[in-house]
Simulated scan of single mutants.
Amino acid sequence: MAYEARNFEHLLGIEGLSDKLLKNHFTLYQGYVTNTNKLIDELGKLEKEGKAGTPEYAELRRRFGWEWNGMRLHEYYFGKMTRGGKEIDKNTNLYRKIVKDFGSYENWEKDFKATGMMRGIGWAVLYYDITAGRLLNVWINEHDGGHLSGASPILIMDVFEHAFMIDYGTKRADYIEAFFKAIDWTIDPELDSALFGGK
């Protein structure tokens, strides 16, 4: 079954991110979906031809993580934004967990923004380490490297240049502020309880 690009056009008109920027970003995301499907097909073809041990197969297999993560990270990123944003509910277990792990929501926000301001291209991610029961802000340099094995992404911020240059040039901090105004902190009550209720 092929992956299908999700439609995020409901984000058009979002404050702080122009429609031109978003449409370009959606096109980039759709490219990751297309390339993920192409790689799945090509790898399957090579396997059927008995070429799984070839350098060609190996290089395509290595490339798969880049394309698939590029697809999925963009889905998480766009999926946690909404026009006007939705503030975090201070009665959720997620909010209480942020306060417990970072000392305050403000401390977490300052640290997450600092992570996003690091020089280079990549992603800032709020991860939940289910095993240790703690939240961590993490920098991912490339789509396919730097992820925390077994941890669940809670919030993803794209800080590759394509996410902000059209609107903000090199003013990444202004883009980060616009992103924060668009975050949708809505969390399903069952997920909130299952992930953060007992920790």
Rank of each mutant, 00 (worst) to 15 (best):
D184E: 07
F112C: 05
E4M: 07
V33Y: 02
T54K: 12
F180Q: 14
K51P: 05
D144S: 13
A5W: 03
Y29H: 04
N24S: 14
A194T: 11
T115I: 03
T115N: 01
G84I: 09
F112Q: 03
G53D: 08
T115W: 01
E9A: 08
R61G: 04
R63M: 12
K181C: 04
G13C: 09
K86G: 01
W185A: 02
H147P: 03
T34Q: 04
A173H: 13
G53Y: 05
V33P: 01
N35F: 06
A182V: 04
G120E: 07
G146F: 00
E9N: 14
E9Q: 13
V125E: 00
K110D: 07
K181Y: 05
K97P: 02
N69R: 14
K171P: 06
Y32W: 09
A132S: 11
G120V: 12
A132M: 11
D111P: 02
I176G: 03
I98K: 00
G13K: 13
H143Y: 14
A194S: 12
M118E: 12
I166Y: 09
L28H: 11
N35E: 09
M118K: 15
L17T: 06
G133Q: 08
G65V: 01
A58N: 13
W185T: 04
A178E: 09
A2N: 12
D144I: 06
T36S: 08
T36C: 04
H162D: 09
N91I: 05
D41V: 09
D111M: 08
E109T: 05
L21W: 04
L46V: 05
R6Y: 08
E47I: 15
F78M: 01
M117C: 07
Y168G: 07
R6P: 02
L135S: 01
R62E: 14
L60K: 15
N37C: 03
L11N: 10
